[in-house]
Design a protein around this nucleic acid. Structure first.
Length: 553
RNA sequence: GCGCCCAUAGCUUAAUUGGAUAGAGCAUUUGACUACGAAUCAAAAGGUUGGAGGUUCAAAUCCUCUUGGGCGCGCCA
């Protein structure tokens, strides 16, 4: 928020300067927090950029700009220095810093948020969407954590967001799945029956068969596919719930690939007819091909096989059309990086349906590579060699697990060592951050024993918070807004884990240096307000990550 | 063979998207609990950002080449 304030003011200064030189185009510049060794709050590169435009020496431009900044923004900036390389360093006035703290105290858990506006994009975020053939494994956990946190951030920023899980409950794999249960069921009365190696080996299939068996129905009355999917789906929902992820909508593929309208046609039938009629698809060797090669994909793709069956792509085209038909103006798909080959194809489809390619964002996250004591563990659902999300959540806890998954850029692969995760659960930085909140609340509890603490913000003398540690802490609190901005820009929540760790670092330093409960009632009251601000920001930040903030640990 | 992604300290990795002396955590070494919680702090050490060119006032970041790794390339889902 401090940065935003400075940015706005500087922008008008620069535009005015450019106008005076006869330039009227818009101008964008960078306002950064300089490295530690530089004693200033912000650095701006405008002089270098403007000098280039005007073909002048940047030292001269910097000197002129520095003078104007001092004159025009003296109310918020108290010091301007020109660095050797042409960057201009700025120090903000203390009042600006205290103003930021007051704003946090007033706005509380709305700080930096934007009220829901009707004119903002209506977004559909589709994530996890694991096939209902078994429990969620650890890899799905990363997608779940990233997707859910991204939605929390987008909602904080005023977007109307819906979380959706696409359920592939149609196709051959479902038949194999149903058959797996049926064979396990039959094995219970006939031990001679072999279990085929290409079927689902997981023990959960046996559990499902046992449950069906216990109902005592006749085998002719049992719909194995229905029973199996229902059972697995319940497990998936429970696993997600305990991971603090709840979807707004579960979209079943059968809605578009099985359900027929009054003319006996499915949505997939209709989309294929439409694409063919519009010359976006053609028939070759009795199969229906999509002209995807003309829309950015490497080649054309089959929609309907020569035997009349549809491919997975056909459902997906219909599904994405359906998303737009439901009024969403922005679609975000979060996929594991192993699906990257599919990106060009589905983007091509969206454009062929007449929508802008920008209406669909596909975010890929690199896969979680599992290791156990440094040795890699290979996962596969059919072979039953996988670690479930539930196992890990039960072992290290929801908070540590989510924080760990959100620690890194989605584009960077994540190594998850099972033994390490268990052993070092105390070393997960989530506790470092949660400890800030616990320490703060401990101080607040202690302060209840005191009398004469000033609680009215207007009566607080904030200028007493004048040590370097206190000012750094407030500046860091205010950077919450910058973190929101960069998260939106990059569509990634991982900036918040980094930010919270940095904030914790600044807080703990403050804690060592500045005692909150002192003999000076005015100072104590002011510092207690600062503590209040810390609690607000840490809780807000952890909440955006879906991580709890306990008052005691 | 073609395509996408990655490579940063011993290990896991960050870098406000092109800015200054590349930040953390773990591991290693040293110091700090007789007032708010030591799940903490202070300090040391650790880097040619895989390599080579190029663009730029400025490159971990952009371009080209190259090496190593992950993944994907079906009328499968």
């Amino acid at each position: 928020m401090i940065r935003q304030q400075v940015l706005t003011r500087l922008n008008s200064v620069f535009v005015k300067y450019l106008n005076s030189k006869g330039l009227h185009n818009s101008f964008s510049f960078i306002l950064k927090v300089p490295p530690k060794n530089i004693d200033s709050d912000f650095a701006v590169n405008a002089a270098i950029l403007i000098a280039k435009k005007l073909k002048m020496d940047h030292k001269i431009v910097a000197k002129q700009l520095a003078e104007i900044i001092l004159r025009e923004t003296f109310d918020i900036i108290e010091k301007v220095e020109i660095a050797e390389n042409g960057l201009i360093n700025l120090c903000v006035r203390s009042e600006v810093i205290y103003g930021a703290l007051k704003k946090i105290l007033v706005e509380k858990n709305k700080y930096g948020s934007i009220p829901k506006e009707n004119n903002k994009k209506k977004i559909l975020v589709e994530f996890v969407s694991a096939n209902p053939t078994g429990p969620l494994h650890i890899g799905h956990g990363r997608g779940a954590a990233i997707g859910d946190s991204l939605v929390r951030i987008l909602r904080y920023l005023g977007y109307d967001v819906t979380k959706e899980y696409y359920l592939n409950d149609v196709g051959n794999q479902m038949l194999v799945l149903a058959e797996s249960t049926e064979i396990r069921y039959k094995q219970m009365t006939d031990g001679e029956i072999d279990f085929p190696p290409d079927h689902y080996q997981g023990g959960y299939i046996i559990d499902i068969a046992k449950r069906i068996f216990s109902t005592g129905r006749d085998i002719s009355e049992i719909d194995f596919k229905y029973e199996t999917i229902r059972d697995i789906l319940r497990t998936i929902k429970d696993d997600l719930k305990d991971f603090a992820v709840e979807f707004d909508n579960w979209f079943s593929e059968s809605k578009i690939a099985v359900v027929k309208d009054e003319n006996g046609k499915t949505k997939v039938d209709k989309i294929c007819e439409y694409l063919f009629a519009k010359n976006k698809a053609y028939i070759k060797d009795e199969a229906l091909w999509l002209f995807s090669g003309k829309f950015g994909d490497t080649k054309d793709r089959v929609l309907r096989k020569s035997n009349g069956e549809y491919t997975y792509l056909a459902s997906d085209v219909a599904y994405h059309k359906n998303k737009f038909e439901r009024g969403f103006t922005k679609l975000i798909n979060l996929w594991g990086a192993d699906h990257h080959g599919y990106v060009a194809r589905i983007k091509a489809c969206v454009q062929m349906l007449g929508f802008s390619g920008e209406a669909l964002d596909i975010i890929l996250y690199q896969l979680v590579s599992l290791t156990r004591n440094g040795r890699s563990v290979v996962m596969s659902t059919r072979s039953n060699e996988f670690i479930t999300l539930r196992e890990v959540v039960d072992e290290i806890g929801k908070d540590a697990c989510r924080f760990f998954f959100l620690l890194r850029d989605p584009n960077s692969s994540l190594e998850f060592d099972l033994e390490l995760a268990k052993k070092r659960s105390n070393e997960n930085p989530v506790f470092y951050v949660q400890y800030v909140n616990a320490r703060c609340n401990s101080i607040i509890r202690e302060s209840k024993n005191r009398k004469n603490i000033i609680s009215d913000i207007e009566a607080i003398n904030f200028t007493l918070l004048d040590t370097k540690e206190e000012k750094n802490l407030i500046k860091k609190l205010s950077a919450f807004c910058d973190t929101l901005a960069i998260s939106e820009k990059t569509m990634s929540p991982h900036h918040f884990t980094t930010y919270l760790i940095e904030l914790a670092d600044v807080y703990h330093k403050f804690y060592e240096k500045c005692r909150v409960l002192t003999d000076d009632n005015n100072l104590t009251s002011a510092r207690l307000k600062l503590i209040e601000g810390v609690i607000i920001i840490v809780k807000n930040g952890l909440n955006l990550l879906g991580v709890s903030a306990p008052d005691k640990m």
